[in-house]
Design a protein around this nucleic acid. Sequence first.
DNA 1: TCGTGTTCGTGATAGGCTCTAACTAAAGCT
DNA 2: AGCTTTAGTTAGAGCCTATCACGAACACGA
Lengths: 226, 226
Amino acid sequence: MAAESRTEPGLRDRFRAQVRQEVKTAALRQLAEGGPEALSLNAIAKQVGMTGPALYRYFTNRDSLLTELVIDAYGDLASTLSHAADAGTTDPVARLTAVVEAYRAWALAEPHRYRLLFRAPLQGYDAQSTSLVEASQPAMKVVLEVVGALAKPGTAVAEGPAAQFREWMNHHEIVDVPEAVALRTTMLWAHLHGLVGLEIEGNFTSMGIDPVSLYESEVKDFVRSL
Amino acid sequence: MAAESRTEPGLRDRFRAQVRQEVKTAALRQLAEGGPEALSLNAIAKQVGMTGPALYRYFTNRDSLLTELVIDAYGDLASTLSHAADAGTTDPVARLTAVVEAYRAWALAEPHRYRLLFRAPLQGYDAQSTSLVEASQPAMKVVLEVVGALAKPGTAVAEGPAAQFREWMNHHEIVDVPEAVALRTTMLWAHLHGLVGLEIEGNFTSMGIDPVSLYESEVKDFVRSL
DNA sequence: TCGTGTTCGTGATAGGCTCTAACTAAAGCT
DNA sequence: AGCTTTAGTTAGAGCCTATCACGAACACGA
């Protein structure tokens, strides 16, 4: 079966993929204790049972490994949010609340990964930066879809300053959501970003603030703002 | 004048302080291009005209240099905000708007420093973390004071979950501000954190969103929420 | 004015890191 | 079978942080 053997993953490729995965989990484990600077290819290699240079067969770069972790994390976050959106009731507000809570929970459960997202691998190359921004969109999209159910089918048509934004929405196949609502959602997104960021860094506890009430207000305000 | 010579800065100390400052500015310059990982003590030393090890006479550590930069940045931010608050009119809303805009402007003008604040030197030692949180409070305080004028002298007394927060407020000499308003302000703070963070990383431009309108909404919503 | 102790900067060095290069061993394909 | 591609090795270049021991410059009291 020539045709089959050509399309099949290939035994070798599967091994390769598995090693890659093993390396990544080792990297995550190391990331959890010590932050992104502490991530050492040598140490990772030792952990998966090989010497340093061998890793370069699997990842071209230290940075490329890191950005791959970032992209994975974005994907994981997106699927977590999407799962939270579909799990409970169909009540729009409840769904939104669930998504917000899932966002927070994910960040609290794996702060190191969340930090990884929030501040990318810290070098600021434009090329990577845009690819990372792209990777962040699916998660954003989940929120937008949940919000879509909240908003009445608007008649607003792109015009003026929102035209570019509408274009972005079209490009990401977000329809039936008025720009105003989408803008609002972006703000919600940014707000969560900020709240979680502060909470992870311990600002709230140091101020004696209970974060839960903040998130509740957040959702309430958002719904009201529509 | 034994008393005088004892209390005076001392010629040597002043030189020392000046070198420290020079090192820090060189560090900032290097930080602006390449991020915190690229900050190399060797390179800094070369830039100020000495060899690597000499820096250890002035800073015990690479990390200690970084955290000092963070603390400086917080101070700078706080004074910028405070200046913005006192510059214009006495109209409370206008003052708040000015502060918000100053916050954003500062972050946009020096993204690398803002990043430094937002995600501390990336190692996560608890001891430093709390000291950094402490350093962030003065800036927060400026916002709270501006808001204080906005809020009617409330009669709210700490009770229940807000008690700890009230304690924190007392400790920072924030009086005449009801807890509810202070909480609201904390949220505003977090929101700005989130908006600026996304804007700096280029998310808004990549989505075709004009950030200015977001900040305007932010202030408007905040005022309404009181 | 002359020791004398403190401070500043140096080169040398240890130990770590990323990443390249040359080489060996093994696996897959024909 | 033999040939080719791949996975892993060791060696090493060139960085880095950080420590150490030493010499030079300075401040200061006698």
